[in-house]
Amino acid sequence: MAFLKTNYIKKDSVIHSLNPLVKFSWVSLVVVLFLFSGSMTLFIVVNIIILLLAFLGKVGRDFIKGLVFMIGPIFLFSLMIHGLFNPFGISEEVLFSFYTINISLEGFYYGLFFGFKISALISVFYLFILTTYPGRMVTSLRTIGFPHKLGFLVNATLQIVPLMLREAETIIDAQRARGLETKGSITKRLGAYVPLLGPIVLGSVMKVYERTIALEVRGFSSTADKTSLYVENITLTDKLLIALSVVLLIIYVVFRVIG
């Protein structure tokens, strides 16, 4: 089940070999644009660039397959909400009419705008996920001084969550075998939710104490300067690419302020 693994795809590509910090810089850049930009052209360009990067990372096909699945409903609902009701618009101009339904020109534009905008945000995270081995992500953050304990939180989460999801699946199967209805009316399904989740929650919370001991005896609270088994090298290319993200960010901010 795909849900049980991280969606990283192991490939030997330029994008894979980049220091994860480079990809963090891309994510940050797109997040800033997402928060402050109102330009549809800009978001379309961002979408295209990320798509090209996905192909450069040899994950182009998986990228498209996954992305279409995610942004399909977004474009659909976006065009529906904005095309039909144009809540952000002022113009009454109609793009086309279908019986009593009017799709407004401005609403249609907003529909596409939010579609591309959201798609850009999803794309950049998706590219990161597909091409970054999670272990390297934590190591790279540690290398630039992120707290060791934060690294523990991320790695432990990545290990514990699949275990718990597997447990969830086992419990679902076991309860189904005992006749618990996981299909049918909504009240039935809601009724199934509690007996399924309860044991997982209780069982896992009871184990926290033992894990606390395990952490303590490994010097988790030690005040010594932490060291790392692995370090992520930052190559010249990595540095240049991070610098590029920063420059693009500055250019964007300058244009926003002037324009």
């Binding site: 304990k149 523990f152 939180l153 432990a156 989460t157 290990q159 514990i160 969550v161 275990l163 718990m164 999801l165 447990e167 969830a168 989740l197 997982i200 929650v201 896992s204 919370v205 184990k207 926290v208 894990r211 606390t212 952490l215 988790f220």
Partner: peptide, 14 residues
């Protein structure tokens, strides 16, 4: 801190 990954696991399992 030991509780946080477990809590996240519960969230995802939920």
């Amino acid at each position: 801190l030991a509780l946080i990954p477990i809590a996240i696991g519960i969230n995802w399992a939920g």
